[in-house]
Design a binder for these strands. Structure first.
Lengths: 127, 127
DNA sequence: GTGATGCTCAAGCATGGACTTGAGTATCCG
DNA sequence: CGGATACTCAAGTCCATGCTTGAGCATCAC
């Protein structure tokens, strides 16, 4: 069922794994080779290589091989994609929440004279 | 290998699934019952219920049952946890990047007399 | 009451994906 | 040259997770 079509799909899938998040955390402090990345984990190098591939294909990191060493570094734009996906949903919801608050305030003002007019979702009144 | 100990673990795991992200997207536009959430998907209600449970346990949504209807709404703080995890790593890396840029600039100034202090990579010369 | 709606729960299946092993290749170092 | 390092690749195992089915239970509408 999982088809990681879009960039955002791939980024969230990549960040869904705790090991990969730990790699991102490490790389946020500076570039590292694959074997440096592997060192703290109780994993084979091959396993870490696979995680690195997932991160690279998602655009969260970039790697470059020089000699026999592949150096990995964070690609901030990849992370930014996920960050702003979240931020958009959260702020959309929070704006809605604010509108509702404003609406209720306004309604409270008119309350004594106005009857309940419609069951419809009402006027936004400020965005 | 997966132990979703911390809140952040659970949130990223929850957001790792495209169906659950679609649910979050829907809920960012306003609360909905479980069957409303299920409507757009080619999934059984039971499957959607399971996704809703994962989202709720991760703190990304909150649900409330009244009568026979369970209403789901976004819990912005849950999303904020993931958002700031990302933001911290990204800004840590970007600050490092800026420092490096400044250092290289400074080094370029002294360049004729100064020796190589560190095995630094290339000079990205900031952008 | 009957029937429809909106879930809830338990069991079971099937697949994705995390991980290992084992072998191979290229690079560096002395 | 030879040995060590740093991956790379292919195969295969195994388990978590996504999903379904089928049953059960309130709640609502009539």
């Amino acid at each position: 069922m999982l088809e990681h079509h879009t960039a955002v799909d791939r980024v969230f899938h990549a960040l869904g794994d705790p090991v990969r998040r730990a790699l991102v955390d490490r790389l946020s402090r500076g570039p590292a080779s694959v074997s440096e990345l592997a060192r703290p984990f109780d994993l084979t190098l091959a396993a870490v290589v696979q995680h690195v591939q997932v991160l690279e294909q998602s655009g969260v990191i970039r790697t470059e091989k020089v000699g026999r060493v592949r150096t990995c570094r964070l690609e901030p734009e990849g992370l930014a994609a996920a960050e702003s996906w979240i931020a958009q949903r959260r702020s959309l919801w929070e704006r809605r929440f604010d509108r509702l608050g404003a609406l209720l305030d306004e309604e409270a003002d008119h309350d004594r004279s106005a009857p309940r007019p419609a069951p419809a979702p009402k006027k936004p009144r400020r965005q």
